[in-house]
């Protein structure tokens, strides 16, 4: 941070000022769309976008122009989302909402007949939009901390060790949560597809 005493209206500063409100015009829609696809409530998504712009404003001197503004704003947003998931993950109230897991396997570890996966009867590429819709719906049904664990996996380019440190869990615990979330997402999408066919 440089101190510029006595020059309250330097050219650089006033340019940043006009820039940031044009950024709000230009990028709010994109940032909100990205965020809403990843958190449950619209109001939470709006708050995250807002604190992203505030952080961008406060850190404007660190934006050196080497990446695009959009990229820079998204990198701030991803950090804010990571904070959000970390909090959601560690929230003891949310942890207590954990549901009873359904049993998909027999005692010998084989699939129970009604849970044995069969291929989805669809052209996954052609119906990508439909699948995305089902996925969005099914993500809302995940217990909040499973969702936080799975969202962390796809948010940034950081390895599992770093995520586990952030969440305060072991790598084994982490992949098991990813696996449980995946089992549940797969069940849910399968049900959605079947509903459509009946």
């Amino acid at each position: 941070m440089s101190k510029k005493t006595g020059s309250s209206n330097t050219p650089t500063l006033s340019r940043s000022e006009s820039d940031i409100s044009s950024w709000v015009d230009k990028y709010t829609q994109d940032l909100l769309r990205y965020t809403k696809a990843r958190v449950k409530d619209l109001s939470v998504a709006e708050d995250l976008v807002q604190i992203t712009f505030v952080a961008a404003w406060e850190g404007r001197e660190r934006y050196a122009g080497q990446s695009s503004i959009r990229t820079w704003l998204f990198s701030i947003l991803k950090n804010k989302l990571a904070d959000h998931y970390r909090k959601a993950y560690r929230d003891p109230v949310l942890h207590r909402t954990e549901e009873l897991e359904i049993e998909r396997f027999a005692d010998n570890g084989g699939w129970l007949p009604e849970h044995r996966p069969t291929e989805w009867s669809m052209d996954a590429l052609q119906e990508a939009e439909l699948l995305e819709e089902h996925l969005a719906h099914c993500l809302q049904g995940l217990p909040p901390h499973w969702r936080a664990a799975i969202e962390m996996k796809y948010l940034r380019n950081v390895d599992a060790k770093e995520i586990c440190q952030e969440l305060g869990i072991s790598v084994t615990n982490y992949w098991q949560q990813i696996h449980r979330a995946k089992l549940k997402l797969r069940d849910c999408i399968t049900n959605q597809l079947q509903k459509r066919n009946h």
Binding site: V24, K36, V49, Q50, V54, W57, L135, A136, I189
Partner: peptide
């Protein structure tokens, strides 16, 4: 396939962001 979808999530409905933009601008100087 779910991995692939999670990595490439882009679709979400468009939002009316007017009110939000105003709220953000109030928090920013200028």
């Amino acid at each position: 396939l779910i991995d692939h979808l999670l990595e490439n999530r882009s679709r979400a409905e468009a939002f009316d962001t007017k009110a939000l933009e105003e709220r953000i601008n109030l928090r920013l100087p200028g």
